[in-house]
Computed example of a mutant assay.
Amino acid sequence: MWGSGFTAIEVGLDSLPPLLFAAFRFDTAALVFFALVVASGARLRPGSRDDIWLVLTTGVFLIGAHFALLFLGQRHVSSSVAAIVLSFAPIVTPAIALAVLPFHRIRATDVLGLLVGFVGVAAIAVAGGSLGGRFAGIALLFGAAVTFAFGSVLTQRFSRTLPLVSLQAWSMLVGAAILHVGSLAHPSEALSGVDWNGGAIAAIAYLGVVSTVGGFLLYFALLERVGPTNASLVSYATPVIAAVFGAALLGEPITVVMALGFALIAVGFALCQIRPLWQLVRGLWGSRHAPIEGGAVRVRGNEYVLEEPTLERSRVSTGQGYGPSNGRNGTAQPVADD
């Protein structure tokens, strides 16, 4: 859904000014999300100050600023190049977290990963030739990646009480408003200049409903099921899908330098996430239910210790929509990630 979205952006940019195009995308998504809130009966009104700050942070950074830079940048580069540059976001995240989050530590592998990933982005930019439009596009997309990483880290400072679907609805509305303001302020954008052809309408509908509503709902469901490290691997499937769709539908070339740049960015990510990735590999190769010392048990990579001799079987399983019980009466308590 996200990889093919870059192709839809490329199609829509042929007829629509970038900021207004992005605003229409999130207008559509906001309408769908608010309809889902009404249909599900979820609470719509924010219940705390953190809810309000979370809506503003998501709307301003993850949607408004991020997608403004993305749509402006993709005017100058192919859809596959745009997707590759945006995959830099998980690499720069640790460095931003160090500055924004208290008690966050950065390791040598994080610094090395950041440098390797930056070399990958630079290789793609230099391959485009002179300091012309392509370089400007890469710079804008790099800014989009950094903005997304900053917004993602900043959201960790707030605790959500608002249902996820309501949070998304408000965030889309805030983001769309920011994009509309940006479009009005942009000297070369005007609603009167929009070419309302079939391709433009289809691109708005596909991005708003499929890539945004469908993609965001699936991503957050995945995030809650497998955790942020595993879910962030989506960032490295997206450019591959974007390249395939771009080549098949738009005839965009896939060059050796693009592949090399993407490989360097992927290596940079692996260095930044070397510990959780190693835990993931160990979990995949190790036993699913291996007994360990001290009366504890390991279940799919998570280590639990028993409060009493019995283990509530119905609440232990992880990975099938259940989590470890936090109750009493002989239930398991998580003590560490293995």
Rank of each mutant, 00 (worst) to 15 (best):
A243N: 04
G246C: 05
A247P: 01
A248K: 04
L249H: 10
L249N: 04
P253C: 15
I254S: 02
T255Y: 02
V256L: 12
A259R: 01
A263S: 09
A263H: 00
V267G: 03
V267D: 13
Q273R: 06
Q273F: 13
P276M: 03
P276H: 05
P276N: 03
P276V: 03
L277E: 11
L280A: 11
G283F: 05
G283Q: 06
L284T: 02
W285K: 13
R288K: 07
R288S: 11
H289S: 15
H289V: 08
A290N: 09
P291N: 12
P291C: 10
I292Q: 14
I292R: 05
I292S: 15
R300W: 11
R300I: 08
E303R: 10
E303W: 15
Y304R: 09
L306P: 04
L306N: 14
L306I: 14
E307Q: 07
P309L: 15
T310A: 15
R313A: 09
R313T: 13
R313L: 05
R315T: 12
V316M: 04
V316S: 15
S317N: 09
S317L: 11
G319E: 01
Y322H: 14
S325I: 05
N326C: 06
G327M: 13
N329T: 08
T331G: 06
A332D: 00
A332G: 06
V335W: 05
A336F: 13
D338E: 13
D338Y: 11
